[in-house]
């Protein structure tokens, strides 16, 4: 597990969820998502050479991360399990901002936008300590992920937009680090993360899961 996640996973919550994965292993999930053509394919399809797939692919990659963050905060607010007013306010405000990021990316991508993955946050939205630790990990990851793509973005206008979002993610990281009782900004320089690194970290959480099977072609046997 990455240092970002290790640092804020003192109780091993993320590691536990990783270990608690049922028969669906992380690798299975990745392969399943690829076969199903879901958003996770973007993470998994990042080649070792990091060849540019174009600005659309980068926007979709950003969209998956924004889906992850916005779904996390929105669920935390809706589950009403956070104890303190500060944590509640964090989920409420950060959720609204991440949803705005999602809306902007969806609008820009139009029909090229990937589908929202199916998430299972495994109780981290219903326990304040786990919520804060996971939030720190997500925001650090978001800032590092945007930074890792900056040099690959061809359009100056999109780069400008990405930088605008990146600095907001960094503010969020400082905000929730402060909430976690950690120094908000202790490094002089932040390191970027590649798509492959981000992919591994997201997969390690087990938060992106297969969509449950709710459709069937079986002949109905309802009462009629």
């Amino acid at each position: 597990m990455d240092t970002y996640f290790e640092q804020f996973d003192r109780d091993g919550a993320l590691r536990e969820t990783e270990a608690a994965l049922p028969a669906e292993t992380r690798r299975d999930l990745l392969l399943g998502a690829l076969a199903g053509g879901t958003a996770l394919a973007l993470f998994a399809s990042e080649p070792a050479s990091a060849a540019t797939k174009g600005d659309v692919a980068i926007l979709n990659y950003a969209l998956v991360l924004e889906y992850l963050q916005s779904s996390f905060y929105t669920e935390a607010e809706r589950r009403k399990a956070l104890r303190t007013a500060t944590a509640k306010q964090t989920a409420r405000v950060l959720g609204s901002v991440e949803r705005a990021h999602v809306a902007a990316l969806e609008q820009a991508l139009g029909s090229a936008a990937v589908k929202r993955p199916f998430f299972d946050f495994r109780g981290t939205t219903e326990n304040e300590d786990a919520f804060i630790r996971t939030g720190v990990a997500f925001e650090d990851l978001g800032a590092a992920a945007y930074k890792g793509q900056a040099h690959r973005i061809q359009s100056k206008a999109l780069l400008q937009a990405a930088i605008s979002i990146h600095s907001v993610e960094a503010r969020h990281a400082a905000w929730i680090r402060y909430l976690a009782g950690t120094t908000p900004a202790s490094s002089a320089f932040d390191e970027p993360k590649t798509m492959a690194q981000v992919n591994r970290l997201v997969a390690s959480t087990g938060f992106i899961v297969r969509r449950p099977t709710t459709r069937s072609r079986r002949r109905p046997r309802f009462t009629g």
């Binding site: 049922p22 929105t74 607010e77 809706r78 409420r92 405000v93 959720g95 609204s96 901002v97 949803r99 705005a100 990021h101 809306a103 902007a104 990316l105 609008q107 820009a108 359009s155 100056k156 206008a157 999109l158 780069l159 400008q160 937009a161 605008s164 979002i165 449950p212 709710t214």
Partner: peptide, 29 residues
């Protein structure tokens, strides 16, 4: 000046108080 951003980012919207949503979950086992 810097170029105009390539995305139109809307103003953040808070969840409505008393929003009418229902929650469901699949069974793992």
């Amino acid at each position: 000046p810097a170029p105009a951003p390539g995305l139109s980012i809307p103003a953040p919207r808070l969840l409505a108080n008393g929003e009418a949503v229902s929650v469901w979950a699949p069974l793992r086992a």
